[in-house]
Design a protein around this nucleic acid. Structure first.
Lengths: 223, 223
DNA sequence: GTACATTTCAAACATGCGTTTGAAATGAGG
DNA sequence: CCTCATTTCAAACGCATGTTTGAAATGTAC
């Protein structure tokens, strides 16, 4: 078997298992068993489990990130600031294109992203901000331009809130799909979830800021 | 040493380690070491690691849930439907009271909640909906009344989006606190994060629904 | 077709895990 | 003080993990 065939079989088996069970709770024996290769093949071809995890993520990141960067640059080059919903809509096309590269590609990638952020605390965050910091900066800049009423700190928090929304939804998307299909007879595919996500995120990010007095009065009213 | 002393030391050590590292990645040896008790004490006093996890969560749930239920019932008894921000504000007081019971109690509980939802997929979800389903139903009912324009399926998705926001934010709150303090010189305590969360969540949940045509036009514009 | 490099494979390694065990220590009641 | 139940403790158990090893198999070039 050629080198690339074995590596690909390992990557395919690993990514599906990682998405299902998380990185820490997936063993190399599960991976090599599903990939139908020898246990030692992972360490031979990738060096370690940690390197395998990075390779699995990189396969998607190196496709998505350049496309995002290109789109962001296009919007930044325009004279007028872009509206927030349009900034967020930039993600749709590149993410859905992962579906063409590989069946379930979009779901898998977003689930992996979720796992990476929740499993091993901060590891993935550092990896992404180190390798793709410029892409993220351009996105943040666009959001800031589209929401002139929000200061940098508020945007920082709201973008992390949004990251949590996406990442958690995708990490538990399998369960949510099942419930939605059973209780509400809905088509539950990744695209329709993204369609539901965008207005939620746009409204949350652009929400009017609430001042402490309002919060206190709210808590008082609620008594 | 009395039974309750040992059990409490174990619970205290376990909850902080669970919050930091997650349930699966925290070993009984770490817990008993920090608690300064013998390794076998966990199995002697709690039966198993799984039972310990439930005990850790129950300590907070049995305080928070009755208070929430009481508040929700009060709002449901009113004639006019409650405004969404006030419904969400119900959570503030009971959560912040955990701080009095124990230092860092609010943060710990919310972090544990986040861990429980992301670590072992669906386990905590079933536990909560089984034991406290009536509380959650009352909350959902209040949200539905406050958002008459949204159908049940839309609310289902948006409440799970919101759960993701909270849970992810709390699970990674330590890292976020550090970044916020370093980059934006902010006080980064749990209360100020909750203060920031509420308007984000309220706006997201009550966002105008977006129809497919709008999404397509957005994606088109973004090209 | 031989020589060499690459890749596979079964087996073992060291380590850490949750749990169990049986004896020692400690507690409370008569 | 003796007795008995409760709690602690060191040690070991069985198992699963990531990784390493050295021989066997396979591929490649001359």
């Amino acid at each position: 078997m050629s080198r690339v065939q074995t590596q690909q079989k390992i990557l395919d088996a690993a990514e599906s298992l990682f998405a299902e069970t998380g990185f820490n709770d997936t063993s190399l024996r599960q991976i090599t068993s599903r990939a139908e290769v020898n246990l030692a093949a992972v360490n031979y071809h990738f060096g370690s489990k940690k390197a395998l995890i990075q390779a699995v993520l990189q396969r998607y990141l190196q496709v998505v990130m350049p496309r995002l960067e290109q789109q962001f640059e296009g919007l930044l080059a325009k004279q007028k600031p872009t509206q927030l919903p349009e900034v967020l809509a930039v993600f749709v096309q590149p993410l859905l294109e992962l579906e063409q590269i590989k069946r379930q590609g979009t779901t898998l990638f977003l689930q992996l992203l979720g796992r990476g952020y929740t499993d091993v605390q901060g590891h993935l965050r550092k990896f992404i901000s180190h390798h793709y910091g410029s892409v993220l900066n351009k996105f943040v800049l666009l959001v800031q331009q589209s929401c002139p009423g929000l200061d940098a700190a508020e945007i920082f928090w709201r973008l992390h809130f949004s990251l949590g929304t996406v990442v958690f939804t995708m990490a538990s998307s399998e369960a949510l799909f099942d419930i939605a299909a059973a209780d509400y007879q809905q088509q539950a595919d990744i695209e329709s979830v993204i369609r539901r996500l965008l207005p939620y995120l746009a409204a949350g990010i652009a929400a009017p800021v609430m001042y402490p007095e309002q919060l206190n009065s709210m808590a008082h009213v609620a008594h």
